[in-house]
Amino acid sequence: MAKELLKVTDLKQYFPIKGGMLGRTVNNVQAVDGVTFTVHEGETVSIVGESGCGKSTTGRAILRLDEPTGGQVEFDGEDLLALNNRQMRKKRKDLQIIFQDPYASINPRQTVRQVLEEALEIQNVVPKAERAAKIAELMETVGLGAHQADRFPHEFSGGQRQRIGIARALSVDPKLIIADEAVSALDVSIQAQVINLMKKLQRDFSLTYLFISHDLGVVRHISDRVIVMYLGKIVEIGDKTSIFDNPQHPYTKALLSAIPVPDPDIETKKERIILQGDVPSPINPPAGCRFHTRCPFATDRCKTEVPELRTEEHMKEGHQGACHYIKEIQAGTHEAKY
């Protein structure tokens, strides 16, 4: 097995809520609450989940874009949270991020060349004399013409702007790229182009991806392993075949069954699990299993006891689910209430 590149242990990210007469911290948004996982060199690990599950917050906390409340982040054997600001800035060369909205993350007054030059200059990886050649090379790499480098971001379409975002991330030869909903805003036909590009770049430059997305179709196509999050906690983790073909956690099952498939034959036959209610607020998350308020299998035990991630006998190695009743549900001895 390839070596561990990123090791996240018990990561916590709480955002304080100020209130009262004196503006004290009256409560916390527990956006991420004790998340543990590893990413190996050269693989793509996806974090999926719905809004408010903490997937983007996890990505930001790893990069220390928001300072995490607790836990460890080890990158390439080094404790990222122990670095001072200057060391962290240097380290960012190895960890790049691509955002959902490429337009918002590129300065609209800079040409693409200036954007890329700035990235190269900050990390100082390429000598000044070679930068022009490097920029031309980068543009070609992401499927844009070198002659387009002197244009401004608004002169590009959404898909092309995302390519620019990728070029900027690539410019410093990173080891890990965190892609935060990187293809979510794109139309299907353009999305496919960008996904293909990302996969090709991974092969060519042996990149490692942490791919954050709500789109399970994209995730299945791009990932090796998948992490499913719900309300700040990991509910299931495993290789992609396990997660998609043999989901164990009731939430993962519901999530997968909720996605409409572009095939009316499957759609009419499919038994859809429709979860009731909304995702509870992360300010006062439910005690016990956080999913119990919506779970068709929940019992009194789920209301008090927090389930740990575990691998039961019928599950593949490395496939873990955080539910008290994985075995019973699999065996059919624990019935759904609806």
């Binding site: 036909s189 293909n196 299945r220 196509h221």
Partner: peptide, 24 residues
């Protein structure tokens, strides 16, 4: 359009998505 849509219920393995070239 149908070909370029990655589906959660079908595994393409290492195959590339079929794309529509260019943009609107």
């Amino acid at each position: 359009l149908l070909n370029s849509l990655p589906r959660h219920d079908i595994d393409l393995g290492d195959e590339e998505l079929t794309v529509i070239k260019g943009s609107v």
